[in-house]
Design a protein around this nucleic acid. Sequence first.
DNA 1: AATACAGCCTGGACGC
DNA 2: TGCGTCCAGGCTGTAT
Length: 278
Amino acid sequence: MPELPEVQTAIDDLLSAGLPGRRILEARVNRPGSVKPLDPDQFSRMVRGLVFRGIRRRGKYIIFTMSGDLSILAHLRMTGQFKLSSTADGTDPHDRVIFSLEDRRTLRFHDTRAFGRLLCTPSPGDILDRLGPDALDPALTPVQFTHMLHSRRRQIKALLLDQGFIAGLGNIYCDEGLYRAGIHPLRRSDTLGSGEAILLLHAIRSVLATALRNRGTSLGTGETNYMSGGKRGENRSSLQVYGRENQQCLRCGSIIKKIYVGQRGTHYCPVCQPDQRK
DNA sequence: AATACAGCCTGGACGC
DNA sequence: TGCGTCCAGGCTGTAT
């Protein structure tokens, strides 16, 4: 599932493949829903002739800075991937949007489950300004993070998943961060001591940094599996709780539990993350 | 303000 | 083997 490390890996791969500087000759939208709320013709007309200038990330959004003061915002959601091919390969039914580039390569937005979106806009801030600070933004200090947690009173796991609170975390790295910080996923955010809050931010960043080094987490195989640059991510072996329900905790040997928090599967160790709800 | 839940999708895992 | 059923996930919109 693309979360911050997977999105960053996708960006890094596009950068090293030399996407910046390339011009879009034409865009074909195979699935109208993938460019909503624009309609396919509108989208194609808008991006035709634009040149990729830069690629950045904010939370889980990819921001392609384009010529003409436009941006293309991409959200991969569950199964979105960008594929850059040197030739016009055979058609794939899951290539939702296909960009023909001036250098004869093709950039494909491949998305099995079709949850992902591409948006071309002059004002990406309309969307990005709704996000909280990026989890890896050094401007987010432990002290600020502590204040943020104390100003809300929600279950910590649900809060970390809220992109308007902090941007970039998804289900996997939330569970991993809470585990490493020893915090129960149902703890209310305003009951965390400042020591715990600081530990949590550090744990989250450490989990993300490891995942980034491993090029993200790929789980199963096949169509729904995360890949970038034609390669799987190697982070799965670094996961300590996610997907390990009914297995032993690697730290204390207790059995990892799975519960649901806000309709999301949530994995934790009942001993290492004691329930101290107030 | 927080929570719940449907809806968007479809491959893959599972049970029979 | 082949069918049916359920699940996974991020995010938005609506209702409570």
